[in-house]
Design a binder for these strands. Structure first.
Lengths: 340, 340
DNA sequence: CTGAAAGCGCTTACAG
DNA sequence: CTGAAAGCGCTTACAG
């Protein structure tokens, strides 16, 4: 910077004021438009690039957010990460990534490292059944902002969640509109063990109530919480719902279950969607490749990323967020393919 | 740090020497083991955390690597990113991510930002047919190390590649071992248009030669470079290879093509693997979910990540890498499932 | 409108 | 073995 100042014939004060971009507005340093232009020209000719370390040291914002993601995370989380990066870039922010590996001491070490680098906010992409312990939670509180997905991990924490109940409601409505009358719901676990399943069950029942007398009875199959499901389990679900209860459509708790269900149907010589309509949840990459293409609920990563960034940026800037606004709910979208 | 020094009753010099970790070895600053212990204890009690910005400013290494990844990248690249992060963490390095968006000016801006943050090395996850222009390439050269995947983008550049020919050789050998005798190859494009296809063709022909007289003729179908393939194109490939040429096995250039091929077979009332064995390439997430589970070539991301990190770290440390070592070849692995 | 100077938190010769 | 001091590249009051 002093090279530029020397070349132009001014002090670093002027160069700093101009190149900070906020230009001649902040502080009481004012540079004439002409000088400003010369400074910019010389700076670019000399290939000047601001040193972030020096700026940081002077207390400037880092504009880097941390992302913590489970190492055994599903591809879905990485797609969400991609959406988050796009949103961050739009706002002039950068992302540094770290992975959880179950070992809470190493996770805490990662967090310390982020703090030492001046990172003020962190997005946690973690499974809804977290392995965070007290050590990690205490470290996390040292950031100015931490956003979780699915559910907040301590009182007052920030969170972005997808409206799973709305997704299942939309699925039920879609099936009824296609003429299905006996609609089953497949859950991976009992609702009392897994709140994510409870959300789906609620959406299912709301969907049936909204439909009035158009449907014929409630048919819910609940797995033992084993995921991914072994073939026998998928066969059992098909037996219970399609054969015994005689449903003509099944809403599944996720795409992988839906795919296993369709496989089990095929083993029985039945076809989807003719004999049974099937809907998944997640819109994983495989959903459109599968045969038949899987109708499913997309988690709307773009909306998720925007909501998460809003929260994170507000928190990092010290904006007080009222309790009622600390959990943002993102609407999912129904993607119709061939399985319904 | 000065707080710690005051508390212990020494100068920052001593504190710095101890906390730098390299401890009392470097420089000529020596601290007695006892003082060192006290410094460490007080530092942790005070919750001292080194300020990376200050260290950076004094010319210390940043230990952050950049990753540039295409925004429309396949999930496969994100799985590779995950492997790279694990490898980086093992070596005490952090990853900052950025996405290409086709707009070379914005990409160059990202690169400048990385440089300003003291990032010395960058891994480029980009499609093999790159949209880099001169502007971007010039910026990239300013890093101490840049590693590309698939092929190096300028003379002398560092690169990690997967041995595609070896993958296809292994696929051919596997099919012959299973008793298949007429093995076809499906390419998305002509080898002269796409070097990645040329590699596969070479592996196929080597595989047949190695097999001696065990096989019956060369059967290659080449697509018009349209990806992903529309159903008609998949049907055309099946017609040419399975019906006209009468092959009993097909090695596909990637998993998505393999999946479309299997769908086209099913439309004809034929079954896989009974009527035709099919092998993919990539081992995408959908491969194991598909029905039948897809036999495929895995790209071996762990080995890829290790090789990329070796190159990147060496380059950033200024180690001279002989030309013959600038491209690292990673062996792929055959994953056998139900489609063969 | 512009300049001179302090200081962010470290590391590192250099001097005891 | 330990201390005093310079300086990395910026920003920002403060003084002209």
């Amino acid at each position: 910077m002093s090279d530029v100042a020397k070349e132009v014939g001014v002090t670093v004060t002027a160069v700093s004021a101009v190149l900070r971009g906020s230009g001649n507005g902040t502080g009481n340093v004012r540079v004439s438009p002409d000088t400003a232009r010369r400074i910019r020209r010389i700076a670019s000719r000399l290939g000047y690039r601001p040193n972030m370390a020096a700026r940081l040291l002077k207390g400037q914002r880092n504009n880097v957010l941390g992302v913590l993601i489970g190492a055994e995370s599903t591809p879905a989380n990485y797609e969400r990460l991609s959406a988050l990066e796009q949103e961050a870039f739009r706002r002039g922010l950068r992302l540094m990534i770290g992975q959880f590996r179950g070992d809470s001491e190493r996770t805490a070490q990662y967090i310390e490292d982020f703090l030492g680098r001046g990172i003020e906010g962190v997005m946690c992409f973690e499974n809804p059944t977290p392995s965070y312990d007290e050590h990690v939670l205490r470290s996390l509180r040292r950031f100015r902002g931490v956003v979780f997905q699915t559910r907040r991990l301590f009182p007052g924490a920030l969170c972005v969640d997808v409206d799973r109940a709305a997704g299942v409601r939309a699925a039920v409505a879609h099936l009824l509109a296609r003429g299905r009358r006996r609609i089953g719901l497949l859950l991976n676990d009992r609702p009392e063990n897994d709140p994510l399943m409870a959300d789906r069950l609620a959406g299912y029942e709301e969907g049936l109530v909204q439909a009035g007398r158009e449907y014929e009875g409630r048919q819910v199959w609940m797995g033992p919480g084993v995921y991914p499901p072994p073939p026998e389990l998928a066969a059992e679900a098909v037996g219970a719902l399609a054969e015994q209860a005689g449903v003509d459509a099944i809403v599944c708790c996720n795409d992988v279950w839906a795919i296993h269900l369709i496989k089990a149907m095929r083993r029985l010589g039945k076809s989807v969607p003719e004999d049974l309509a099937v809907i998944g949840f997640d819109n994983i990459n495989a959903a459109e490749l599968f045969d038949p293409g899987l109708t499913t609920i997309d988690q709307n990563n773009a909306a998720f990323a925007a909501a998460a960034m809003d929260l994170l940026v507000a928190a990092c800037e010290g904006v007080a967020i009222p309790v009622s606004r600390r959990t943002r709910i993102v609407p999912p979208r129904l993607i119709v393919r061939e399985s319904t």
